[in-house]
Nucleic acid binder design. Structure first.
Length: 485
RNA sequence: GGCUCCAUCGUCUAUCGGUUAGGACACGACCCUUUCAAGGUUGAGAGACGGGUUCGACUCCCGUUGGAGCUACCA
């Protein structure tokens, strides 16, 4: 980067009117990636000017979501509500230069005209001549204390820009009505607040959802009227639900927090999100954050909206589950196991190697953290819950199952060391002697140990459950089966 | 309605005028195997439609159709 190049400054500007949405998270991610890649700053601005809908709870949820994902911001959070004095001043500055004018029309009157136009099937567009007043009239209304909103005087011409995603986008100014920038109560309207703050924060690139495309010409006009440099824009495609409609609550989990609680790994979530509306150009899809930073390029940004595919998200999580170092995975799973009541933090710490080994066994069979927790029960608890289907399938002939398990118990208990190779040798020998296949022993044994037909390799299960507990479980199985014939 | 954006397998995407249109998820089959996963191999599966431009269009242009967003003194 040359010395005179401006360090890029980007921002994520959510309004705190709900949880952190996956679409918002992805916008934040792209901005964050851009800042990291080009050694710039990623800023966070809370757009809380809608006091009726903004809540502290929501602000907290947004912070928590970003923190969970590891999308750290570089400077103090900017609260838009703290800047209304500047917004007000900017609006009045435009009033003085003639870039804006006072509109004394009562809101109810506008509503009425709009309703009438719609009833006729016409599109209502605010007509400047309705509000254009002579200086004398203006002074008279002011003297009478009539309230007014400030409208931006949209000039003639065409407003266009080179979007990093869409290339050139142009809006004829005649299609843009003179929009309000300051309400009659003196508070700023969105487009003014955004521009005023982005100028103040020295934002060089505005990267946001393409639902903002039609706001952009208005904002560009404001930058110019305020004498500021217009930043670059990149409008990224939206994320849609499976039905192709805007992602909303009825599509299921749309909050980042939902996925955190579902047992997703932040790295997997980020990786998945990065591939919605962006691609590297190569065939590698599973990537760590450093790789994403290295590969990120706005040229890979897509124009087309993307549909949120939960199946692929789960697959992605499985991939990350397999790749994450056990030392990083353990602290994520541990609280879930403790919460499930299987164990205590102290126990896990004292059996660290055993715990890590167990995780390694279970994670390959899991897509989310909950899958690991569910499978982990037999390794922690004394009792085991028998799945009726497993029992029905593998212990159908109770007498023969009891005999096999009893012989199995005998051989295992005779082993000098509790170790997989020795176990396998002993049980294969037993199978040989009984003239049956190994599976005829392993499957009933599996049910006795974990209560299911599904588990890691049976010898590893024995090893991880431990000698004492394993033998006790075999005893329990034999006695349960014995009562049935 | 108006304005703007968009259009390759069911989904996410590669292709930057010449390819048997490639990969991933999901789905099917097979291999591996004590089960389940994971992994490997493999199958099916796409350029919305119509015109141009060109020796040659998924790719460039126009139109049609379809979808999306915006259209507030919301953000």
């Amino acid at each position: 980067m040359s010395s005179d190049a401006v360090r890029p400054r980007v921002r994520f500007a959510p309004s705190p009117t709900g949880f952190l949405h996956v679409g918002g998270a992805r916008t934040a991610l792209f901005n964050w990636l851009y800042a990291r890649k080009y050694h710039g700053e990623f800023l966070l601005r809370v757009e809380d000017t809608d006091r009726a809908r903004s809540t502290d709870e929501s602000t907290r949820a947004i912070f928590e979501g970003l923190e969970w994902l590891g999308l750290s911001w570089d400077e103090a959070v900017v609260y838009q509500g703290a800047n209304v004095a500047r917004h007000y001043a900017d609006a009045h500055r435009m009033l003085e230069t003639g870039a804006a004018y006072r509109d004394f029309t009562p809101p109810a009157e506008i509503d009425r005209l709009r309703a009438e136009a719609e009833a006729r099937g016409d599109a209502f567009k605010f007509d400047r001549t309705m509000a254009e007043l002579s200086d004398a009239d203006t002074q008279a209304k002011l003297a009478r204390g009539e309230s007014y909103a400030i409208r931006f005087r949209v000039p003639e011409g065409v407003t266009e820009w080179d979007d990093l995603v869409h290339e050139r986008i142009a809006f004829p100014n005649k299609d843009i009505e003179d929009f309000i920038i300051l309400r009659s109560d003196g508070t700023p309207v969105y487009n003014l607040a955004v521009v005023s703050d982005d100028i103040d924060m020295r934002i060089t690139l505005v990267m946001r959802g393409d639902d903002h495309i039609s706001n952009t010409p208005k904002q560009i006009l404001l930058y110019r009227a305020l004498g500021a440099t217009v930043p670059q824009f990149a409008h990224v495609p939206m994320i849609l639900g499976a039905d192709g409609k805007k992602l909303s609550k009825r599509h299921g989990a749309t909050a980042v927090g939902d996925y955190q609680h579902l047992g997703l790994l932040p790295g997997a979530m980020l990786n998945f999100l990065s591939l919605l509306g962006w691609s590297t150009g190569d065939d590698i899809e599973v990537m760590t954050m450093p790789q994403l930073i290295e590969k990120f390029d706005t040229r890979g940004l897509q124009k087309k909206a993307a549909i949120f595919d939960t199946k692929k998200l789960e697959w992605m999580n499985g991939q990350h589950l397999a790749l994450i170092p056990l030392a990083d995975l353990a602290p994520i799973v541990a609280p879930a196991l403790v919460k499930a009541g299987y164990t205590t933090r102290a126990e896990l710490e004292s059996r660290r190697d055993w715990f890590h080994g167990l995780l390694d066994l279970l994670r390959v069979r899991s897509r989310v953290i909950d899958d690991i927790v569910r499978q982990a029960a037999p390794y922690f608890q004394d009792h085991v819950e028998y799945d009726p289907e497993a029992v029905n399938k593998q212990w159908r002939d109770a007498k023969s199952a009891a005999e096999i398990l009893s012989a199995t118990r005998e051989r295992l208990s005779a082993l000098p060391v509790w170790e997989p190779v020795a176990m396998e040798e002993a049980l294969r020998k037993l199978a040989d002697e009984l003239g049956i296949s190994g599976g005829k022993i392993f499957q009933p044994l599996r049910v006795a140990l974990v209560g299911l037909t599904v588990s890691p390799g049976i010898f590893e299960v024995l090893q991880y459950i431990g000698r004492q507990r394993s033998l006790a479980r075999l005893d329990a199985a034999v006695s349960k089966l014995s009562t049935e014939y």
